[in-house]
Amino acid sequence: MTWLRPIIILAGLIAVWQVVIWATQVEHFILPAPAAVASALVDDWDLLLDNAGITLLEIVIGLVLGILLGCLTALTMAASTRARAWVLPVVVASQAIPVFALAPVLVVWLGFGLWSKVAMALLIIYFPVAAAFYDGLRRTDPGWLDLAQTMQASRWAVLRHIRMPAALPVLGSGMRVAAAVAPIGAIIGEWVGASAGLGHLMIQANARNETPRMYAALIILALVAVALYFLVDRLARRMTPWQSVTDPSRPANAITNAASKG
């Protein structure tokens, strides 16, 4: 029953889609019928797959670099208050400038290829990861810090053995948010200027009135994004194996839990 439920939901959504088309007689170039999109999916499969691969590559590289950079920033800020005074304004500024506004600049700087999209994804991922991890590093149980102090632990040892592992669950939440927003960065980058990728394909299909192809690209993009989210979620759980024992309710994962329980 659990595995059946998503299928039923999907079938229901497609049925509603079809009913809307029958009821409103909407033009096919505004909302194509499910069958038209399905045939676009089949006909353009290779094209869609090639472009999806490129978009996925952009997202994954952006995700990896963004998470690394975010963690590094959070660790730097947690390790020294002096570093924090210098780094924090930069982190906040990175979030204050809308990524959308930066897209054209990045395309000019980094070209129409992969790296301008990677940079977009990275920028959008960086903040949630850095903010979450830093927050986690700051909120270490003061009792643990007291205990470590009576054990003559160095600051570095406390960071490495207590504060960092203690912050991993919060970092996991940050990574889940990052995985959810990463595709936005890549797609915006592709809209602004690209020669390949699902975003590029959608813009092109839109301009040529090939609406079914646009919808097919959208569906592939959604599948890629969902798959990525679950992959990162799996990774985040793997990072904190003690959590499943500690707290079975796991509020940070409500979405995943709801989905996996069906």
Partner: peptide, 19 residues
């Protein structure tokens, strides 16, 4: 004040680990 990610033995050894 046990660290939830460490086993009982590793918690007991926390001091040596930290030093």
């Amino acid at each position: 004040l046990l660290l939830p990610w460490l086993s009982a033995r590793d918690n007991i050894l926390l001091g040596s680990r930290l030093r």
